[in-house]
Design a protein around this nucleic acid. Structure first.
Length: 426
RNA sequence: GGAGAGAUGGCUGAGUGGUCGAAAGCGAUCGCCUGCUAAGCGAUUGUACGCCGUAAAGGUGUACCGCGGGUUCAAAUCCCGCUCUCUCCGCCA
């Protein structure tokens, strides 16, 4: 969330930045509530101060067996007034909070203005697209032909947008996950985390999924828990309500998790194959950084995600999301898009964001500065490194052969017991 | 799922209605002393929000003793509900 004081003092800037995101915002309800809140506070705290003084006096009079009934009666009235002001204050703060919690983050000044994903500037293009002597197939055909992906049975077992991986397909996904984890742990310096796949409402609120996007989440019926849409949620919440020491920053975590997304509103999009599932696997990188270095950390984070594709020798490009395409909590995001020859398109395989203090303010994740001794919010960042299912897609489509088989990228073979190819059937 | 115990400041731990933002100890920071180290002595040692201050410094008020309600002129302290932790039993990977 944004700092209420900041909104109060920079109302016009906030309004303009929201407009850049494509969201018109009337700031006056916010300002009115904020003013009312401070008015109430001043009155109620004045009354409390008065009551504290008089109550002490009453105590002393009673000790001396003097009469205090006049003061007791007067304080009874004051307390009644405090009570009614408290009730109003609570309501005002709830309303104010509800308003602030659904305001998205301010785009960083380097984020270009745009009205759709068409406007995302391409930052880098890497790799050579493979040339085929045949028409490259989309991964859903490859997967079915090799009997490694079973969409129909996934639908039977659960429903639409669930898939069964079989044999070397299952092994390939597992190999990719382990390869990516090892790369980030041993080459990029991240600490591995395995956190809960269900979280409570507080955690979802801290990272920004709630209260605005409940419809996108799967909720557990018996308890008020949610299936995580990304490991970002449990991993960022590791340090919720904590004060970190400046020395330990930046903190780098990497975590495997399945991800569950209701994908509300996305029906009709990407209905075929593995691209848009209700459940998928992902390796996620999460960083906690000093504010001064968070944008350097974002560049490194993105480079770490790109490194996965480079080692797999899969062509990709990196785009910077424009103001309209930026996620709710993010100040700046790079999307890494893998080349998918079967679909003749680049498709998102990683999303790397700097949330600045948007999440840490919600989550109360702070650190103590060594020079001043003051507390400050950390900056949080995260990025996929990478989405495992989509990496399977990229491998299948880029490494498909004329005979229908798929070659395993060399970097994955140690994780596949040396198997170098998924053979064609028949 | 059943029974019991507990939750206080960075930590340990006292505190059963007013003099408690909270004893004491530990730790930490600063200073003094000591020709190194240790010991010793003194001081300081939370956070949030509001107001004053151009700002920083600072001052001031309020709140916070797991969370939420209640009683009372007054609650860490009394009452009710909840959450979490620990121990035992049951169940289970």
């Amino acid at each position: 969330m944004l700092d209420i004081k900041f909104i109060r003092q920079n109302t016009e800037l906030v309004r303009r930045k929201m407009l850049e995101r494509g969201q018109e915002m009337d700031m006056s309800p916010f300002l009115n509530l904020d003013t009312r809140r401070r008015d109430i506070l001043q009155e109620v705290e004045g009354l409390r101060s008065d009551r504290n003084t008089v109550s002490k006096d009453i105590g002393e009079k009673k000790k001396k067996k003097e009469d205090a009934s006049e003061q007791i009666a007067r304080m009874g009235e004051v307390s009644a007034r405090i009570k009614s002001l408290d009730d109003e204050l609570k309501k005002v703060e709830e309303d104010l909070n509800a308003m602030v919690m659904v305001i998205p983050n301010l785009p960083h000044d380097s984020v270009v203005y745009g009205t759709s994903s068409e406007d995302n500037p391409v930052i880098r293009v890497w790799g050579e697209k493979p040339q085929f002597s045949f028409a490259p197939k989309p991964h859903w055909d490859i997967g079915e032909d090799l009997k490694i992906l079973d969409f129909e049975r996934g639908a039977k077992i659960t429903g639409a947008r669930f898939t069964v991986y079989m044999g070397l397909g299952a092994m390939l996904e597992r190999a990719i996950i382990n390869f990516m984890l090892d790369l980030h742990i041993f080459d990029h310096g991240y600490t591995e985390v395995l956190a809960p796949f269900m979280v409570n409402r507080e955690s979802m609120t801290a990272t920004g999924q709630l209260p605005k996007f409940e419809a996108d989440l799967f909720r557990v019926d018996q308890v008020d828990y949610f299936l995580i849409p990304t490991a970002e949620v449990p991993v960022t919440n590791i340090h919720r309500d904590e004060i970190l020491s400046e020395k330990e920053l930046p903190i780098h975590y990497v975590s495997y998790s399945p991800c569950f997304r209701a994908e509300a509103g996305s029906y009709g999009k990407d209905t075929r194959g593995l691209i848009r599932q209700h459940q998928f696997n992902k390796v996620e990188m999460v960083k906690f950084s000093r504010p001064e270095t968070s944008y350097d950390e974002l560049e490194k984070l993105t480079a770490n995600a790109e490194d996965v594709l480079q080692r797999l020798n899969i062509p990709y490009r990196t785009v910077s999301l424009c103001t309209a395409d930026l996620g709710f909590s993010s100040a700046k995001t790079y999307d890494v898009e893998a080349w998918l020859p079967g679909q003749d398109a680049y498709r998102e395989i990683s999303s790397c964001s700097n949330f600045e203090d948007f999440q840490s303010r919600r989550a109360a994740i702070r650190f103590r500065r060594e020079d001043t001794g003051k507390l400050d919010f950390v900056h949080t960042l995260n990025g996929s490194g990478l989405a495992a299912g989509r990496t399977v897609v990229a491998v299948l489509e880029n490494y498909q052969q004329a005979d229908g088989s798929v070659v395993i990228p060399e970097a994955l073979r140690p994780y596949m017991k040396g198997i170098d190819r998924i053979p064609a059937i028949g």
